[in-house]
Amino acid sequence: MDWVSWWNAYSDIILGIGINGLLALSIYLTLSCGLLTLANAAFMGIGAYAGALVSMQTSWPFSVALFVATSLPATAAILIGIPLLRLTGVYLAMATLGFGEVVRIILLNMDITGGALGLNGIPPLTQWWHVLGTLILTVLLVVALKKSKMGRAFEAIREDETAARLMGIHTDRIKLFAFVLGAAIAGLAGGLSAHYTFTLSPGNFGFEAAVDILTMAVLGGIGGVPGPLMGAAILTILPELLRGLQDYRMAANGLILVMVVLFLPGGLWQPGRFRKRMSC
């Protein structure tokens, strides 16, 4: 099989891994502060629609579309994050789930977003190197963040928020930062994906999508940056490998999720474990 047809056949899976990698990293940021937010799919949706509308309705360049796709969800995240991040645990998860559903229904009822028909004929501007470049930059950013004072603050908050606050960490600001940065990355991923799938509809950004994003991060593990990327890669390729299962294909997905939580609580990527095994 020659290179061109190989690329034609697999480019979507490969770009999908990249986009999903970005999404998994976006939820990884909040998860590493110990926050379970289910709003990343909604932020992705806001970014995707905003970016696509810029490309379709104006003659501005692709970079502007991506900028809007990144900044609009970030702004929304600031606005809802300030009141919302006072909540913790399951309450935060439920509130973000509610927010996600509200965003989906608003997208469904606006004229400019095309309602249930969504947007069709978005110019296919995303090239493979856009996705690769964004992914590399994001990974570098997240790795740098993890090593910085900020990253240690994330960890302190995850371990014990009260203790972190007593130590003088501005927990509210740090949590908001993680939430907003996650929203920006998710929005950027949405903007990129909108420009290679040609179409958007509100159903792509509902509860299921939020769960998919979470699953990737959990499967890979949040012990380090490679975890979410691994999870994204596996869950993007898996449906292709499981085609033969037909009706029961989704069952495998569910089973994997249960098994990982029960038997691999830290996810697949656990640096310590690998190092130990490799040495012997």
Binding site: A251, L255, L257, V258
Partner: peptide, 9 residues
């Protein structure tokens, strides 16, 4: 997360 998995199953 585990019960989401169970639901999908």
């Amino acid at each position: 997360i585990a019960t989401i998995g169970a639901t999908i199953l």
